[in-house]
């Protein structure tokens, strides 16, 4: 009860935003493509939020976040194919299971790698990302449906506005509650000074592991939504470049800012996709010149992120 009472405002705000989006879609103005990237932007926010817990709040630099997003996508697509899921209420448990499986993988690899610091952790997570990419490229040897380097085709299109919006909102609320709890305090303390945190009785290894598992769980859930939105998965969707996308969102939103991640995630998707619409096709590829310049400018004007005035958290 307390849960719903304290979060009344947030829940009402979410419902209000949902109704507006629903109305806009109902008006028939947005194209299918625009609706698709709207749903996609929520998914990107969800996965970035996971990375913000790991990196922004707890300070554990990960270059492998997209690998976990991919594990969630492939696992849920595989499950829904094998179980012949077609409805969204059938998809919810499948996505949840995919998230749990992703969290389990994070638990297995988190044990050894979270004992590493800074550069070593970056290299270990990068290595894990490459490993996952190689496995996905050869996944047809595990099971034909996974498709290997040809990609995973023929996934049912089930992800709709309600699923992507409300699952993302639900986990934003859960994440906020965790950040406000003793676990969030431990994470922020560890990011500030891990040694000092252990001196006041925080089991820093366990706290980092919880952050990592939870953040990867969110990536897995997001991957599951993604798979059933785009209906086609390719290993290249989940490589280092995708991991860097998530990092960019966390950094421009502001390390350790939930609202920052939400805004930066939406901004990032609409910006890149928006340029695709606005720019004439001859110069479309100049996006990749424009985007880094804009990133550099943002970092010069707001070095701690869009939503963070000074270095918080």
């Amino acid at each position: 009860m307390r849960f719903f009472l304290e979060l009344r405002k947030l829940i009402f705000l979410a419902l209000f935003i949902y109704l507006i989006i629903k109305l806009v879609i109902f008006s028939g103005l947005p194209t299918d493509y625009m609706i698709q990237i709207t749903l996609y932007s929520f998914i990107i926010v969800l996965s970035s939020l996971g990375l913000n817990v790991i990196y922004g709040f707890t300070g554990q630099f990960s270059l492998g976040h997209a690998a976990f997003y991919g594990i969630g996508a492939y696992t849920s697509a595989y499950l829904s194919k094998v179980l012949e899921i077609e409805s969204y209420y059938g998809l919810i448990p499948v996505i949840f299971l995919a998230g749990i499986f992703t969290a389990f993988i994070a638990y297995i690899i988190g044990g050894p790698i979270l004992r590493l610091k800074d550069d070593f952790l970056a290299i270990a997570t990068l290595g894990f990302g490459i490993l996952v990419r190689v496995i996905l490229d050869n996944s047809d040897r595990i099971s034909e449906v996974l498709g290997g380097s040809r990609g995973f085709v023929g996934i049912n299109k089930i992800t709709n506005l309600e699923l992507s919006f409300f699952i993302t909102v639900f986990f934003i609320i859960i994440t906020k509650n965790l950040i406000d709890s003793r676990f969030g305090l431990f994470w922020r303390a560890i990011k500030n000074d891990e040694l000092a945190a252990s001196s006041i009785g925080v089991n820093t290894f366990i706290a980092k592991l919880i952050a990592f598992i939870y953040g990867c769980f969110l990536a897995g859930i997001a991957g599951g939504l993604y798979a059933h939105l785009y209906t086609f998965l390719h290993p290249s969707n989940f490589d280092i470049l995708k991991s860097i996308d998530f990092l960019i969102i966390v950094i421009i939103g502001g390390m350790g800012s939930i609202s920052g991640t939400i805004i930066a995630g939406l901004f990032w998707v609409f910006f890149i996709e928006g340029l695709r619409i606005i720019l004439p096709s001859e110069i479309l590829e100049y996006r990749w010149v424009l985007i880094p310049i804009i990133l550099i400018l943002i970092m010069m004007i707001r070095p701690y992120g869009l939503m963070v005035k000074k270095e918080g958290y």
Partner: peptide, 26 residues
Amino acid sequence: LFKNLTVLENVIVAFLSKHEYGIIDS
């Protein structure tokens, strides 16, 4: 110190390392 935590949070975090509640409670 945890420089980017508030003064109050610096002390609360120490208290909470001994007074436990779980993830579900959070």
